[in-house]
Write a protein that binds this DNA or RNA. Structure first.
Length: 247
DNA sequence: AGGAGGGCTTCTA
DNA sequence: GTAGAAGCCCTCC
């Protein structure tokens, strides 16, 4: 037997690496509640890296990140509120694994406020690739951190909600939970109205822009295209920037 | 290495 | 209304 304390600690190190090292190599994970049910969330020292719904979490994580996963006893500070509200408020994300295009797209998506929606084409323009509309869809399909990067707020230009990583039903539930009036949006889309203008301010907005929601009915005018609104003398809202996606 | 094909779209006929 | 192709990025072969 050897009771030298130094040797005993060295032996311990051989079996179990110190916490700091392990945390740099491995990711932690935990199951947390969300508006669409329980989610599995993984994070590294840099921030939250992966949000997953349903079965196959650890397999999907390994396939994607190729690093070990260890259970945690509590979520990172602010994670649960961020999932509930769709606002990060300081919560860090680890998006290191992603390509530049995908990071640009996710950054553009962060600009869509809670309770509002924007078209895929708007995201493409904001990401600096106005023609990459289809590729934006692909990038969002691979969004590793849904809810935290609110890709559920990106909808089709024709008014349909479009697809979603966790399925269209989850997209709908999330938007309703944020207070988006989907019935009204649908009504507008049926009339081919995708922009709302106010003749008191002379400004034209996306229908879910908080500025558009305050237009009184008597002063509200709907337009199918931004060009039509401009011809009628309206200028694009500086908050929701409908001019970003189309000429 | 390089091309084909696919994906949360969108525009056109 | 809907089918088809354009279009861009990524993955895989």
């Amino acid at each position: 037997m050897n009771d030298d304390p130094l040797l005993a600690r060295l032996a311990g190190l051989a079996v179990e690496p110190p916490d700091g090292l392990l945390d740099r190599i491995a990711a932690r994970w935990i199951a947390v509640p969300s508006p669409i049910g329980e989610l599995s969330v993984a994070w590294t020292a840099r921030g939250v890296a992966y949000v997953h719904q349903g079965d196959g979490f650890s397999g999907a994580f390994r396939a994607r990140f190729g690093r070990p996963l260890m259970p945690a006893t509590r979520p990172p500070a602010g994670l649960v509120p961020a999932l509930r509200t769709g606002r990060l408020s300081g919560l860090a994300l680890d998006l290191e694994e992603l390509g530049e295009f995908q990071r640009d797209v996710l950054r553009a998506v962060q600009a869509v406020p809670r309770g509002e929606v924007r078209p895929y084409a708007w995201i493409a323009a904001r990401a600096g690739r106005p023609g990459a509309v289809r590729a934006v869809g692909t990038a969002l399909a691979r969004n590793p951190v849904p809810l935290l990067v609110p890709c559920h707020r990106v909808t089709r230009s024709d008014g349909a909600l479009g697809e979603y990583v966790f399925g269209p039903a989850a997209k709908q539930r999330l938007l309703l939970a944020e207070g988006v009036d989907l019935g009204r949006l649908d009504g507008l889309a049926k009339e081919r109205v995708f922009y709302l203008a106010s003749d008191t301010t002379g400004v034209v907005c996306f229908p879910t822009c908080h500025n558009a929601r305050r237009i009184t009915p008597a002063h509200r005018h709907g337009f199918r295209t931004l060009g039509a609104a401009r011809t009628a003398g309206y200028r694009p809202c500086r908050t929701c920037r409908p001019d970003l996606q189309a000429a």
